[in-house]
Design a protein around this nucleic acid. Structure first.
Length: 111
DNA sequence: AGGTTGACCACGG
DNA sequence: GCCGTGGCCAACC
């Protein structure tokens, strides 16, 4: 019922004339569940470009649909948050993650 | 066609 | 914890 299924989102993304690599990165990012995070390196490995972690960051920095494509769930390998080019910048990234983690935690408590 | 750029990574010091 | 360094790769100019 929501028009934000993965396929719908991918369809919307196609209008932005992105490369195959960029598309792959965003698609992999869509698979990161709320309350979880992945590193740039993990995303790179998922799309089978294990050494392109740096390029993954570049691709995410051009994410045309922030929030919808949860690029804020991609962080650095050391555990630090990394950057965020969406509205609100790195501050917003931290808040989003904080909120999502809390929501997920409470959901698990109720089980 | 070749140099520059960047939301990275690992390792030192 | 904070720099610097070398390495890596796709996109951009």
């Amino acid at each position: 019922m929501n028009g934000s299924g993965k396929e719908e989102i991918m369809k919307r993304l196609k209008k932005y004339g992105m490369t195959r690599f960029q598309t792959s990165v965003l698609r992999a990012t869509l698979d990161v569940p709320k309350g979880e995070v992945r590193t740039y390196g993990q995303i790179a490995t998922m799309i089978r470009h294990p050494k392109a972690y740096r390029a993954v960051g570049t691709a995410l920095s051009r994410n045309p649909l922030p929030i919808i494509v949860p690029c804020h769930r991609v962080i650095r390998s050391g555990g630090s948050l990394g950057n965020y080019s969406g509205k609100g910048g790195t501050r917003k990234k931290k808040l989003l993650l904080k909120k999502e983690m809390a929501t997920d935690f409470v959901a698990k408590l109720k089980k």
